[in-house]
Simulated assay, not measured.
Amino acid sequence: MMHLDDMALFVEVVKAKSFRGAAEALGMPNSTVSRRISMLEKALGLRLLHRTTRRIELTEAGQVYYERSKRIVEEARLAHLELGDMLAQPTGVLRASLPVDFAVTYLAPLVAEFARLYPGISFEIDLTPRRIDLVSERFDIAIRMGEPEDSHLIARPLARLVPHLYAAPSYLALRGEPISPQDLGRHDCMGMIREGHWMLTRGDSQCEVPVGGRFHLNNVGMIKRLSTLGLGVILVPEEIVADELASSQLQRILPDWQGKPMPVYALTETRLLPAKTQRFIEFLREKLASKR
């Protein structure tokens, strides 16, 4: 199979009617052009050009090869132009799996902004915490919080979210506001199932606080909702409770202390991504970084 580059070079030689003219147009040595055309003829087993001291002329085989090659090279050029247009203005369906609460609270405005920037992209969005199979389920991308579990996927870091402590004003009016991390031991602290302690830091200080309460769940949205109803203290990134803070349903407590930063990753099955997915990852990375 001939390389497309050799076809394109042959077409340029014919158009220029000389090796020298083609070499000057392409910015390569005249000897290189002559050698590559000779190698092309040898590979084909046919002479394509009659060479004279002043000019070149097509053989019968060369005329046929030129007509075919010219169309192929032009089609390839148009294909590259179209791909360039797709990179500049990507199109297609972007299938994304997003974490429920982070998506609804925080990512939704960003997705809307991205959609306005790229009107040629449509979206199929799956809000789920489950582990998806990017290959068999044909997802382009999954956004996940926490360290990635599947080493077979390509994980691209987007941000690191810092958890803080929050509680409803009604809960604090009833139970009082903690003034130190150790005070959390006498409070109802709502966390994920099997979460028996919180690691908190303040500058260089660090403490591990045993926590407990009546509720242990596996859904951040439910944890957040129960906290707004006055049922306990939660440790989550501000991005998750932005609306509840704005409406004063929750307030921050122990403001000098924070939890362990939570990474956010974009997971893909391969490093070779279509333009729509590349642009989405770049957009989220830029936006998430600017909001830190």
Rank of each mutant, 00 (worst) to 15 (best):
residue 274 P to T: 11
residue 252 R to E: 15
residue 36 R to P: 01
residue 199 M to T: 15
residue 93 V to N: 12
residue 10 F to R: 00
residue 203 G to Y: 00
residue 236 V to K: 08
residue 87 L to P: 12
residue 213 G to Y: 04
residue 42 K to P: 05
residue 20 R to E: 13
residue 269 E to P: 04
residue 53 T to Q: 13
residue 260 K to F: 09
residue 181 P to A: 10
residue 142 A to Q: 12
residue 29 P to S: 09
residue 219 N to Y: 04
residue 273 L to G: 05
residue 101 D to P: 01
residue 86 M to L: 15
residue 177 E to Q: 13
residue 88 A to C: 08
residue 249 Q to A: 02
residue 250 L to T: 00
residue 237 P to L: 03
residue 92 G to H: 14
residue 239 E to H: 02
residue 131 R to I: 13
residue 137 E to G: 00
residue 45 G to M: 03
residue 121 I to N: 11
residue 184 L to F: 05
residue 116 R to C: 12
residue 159 A to G: 01
residue 291 K to C: 07
residue 231 L to V: 04
residue 189 C to V: 15
residue 284 L to C: 00
residue 41 E to C: 07
residue 239 E to F: 05
residue 130 R to G: 13
residue 197 H to M: 02
residue 146 G to D: 02
residue 125 I to Y: 13
residue 216 H to Y: 08
residue 98 L to F: 15
residue 33 V to M: 05
residue 236 V to A: 08
residue 53 T to E: 08
residue 235 L to S: 15
residue 61 A to M: 10
residue 75 E to V: 13
residue 287 K to F: 07
residue 265 Y to L: 09
residue 34 S to G: 08
residue 140 D to A: 08
residue 257 W to I: 00
residue 246 A to H: 04
residue 87 L to V: 15
residue 11 V to M: 10
residue 211 V to I: 14
residue 267 L to Q: 09
residue 204 D to H: 13
residue 152 H to K: 11
residue 40 L to N: 03
residue 47 R to M: 08
residue 11 V to E: 09
residue 227 S to H: 03
residue 54 R to L: 10
residue 257 W to R: 00
residue 160 R to M: 09
residue 195 E to K: 08
residue 210 P to C: 14
residue 179 I to S: 11
residue 243 D to T: 09
residue 88 A to G: 11
residue 64 V to I: 08
residue 21 G to T: 10
residue 112 A to Q: 09
residue 216 H to S: 10
residue 194 R to C: 05
residue 156 R to S: 12
residue 161 L to R: 04
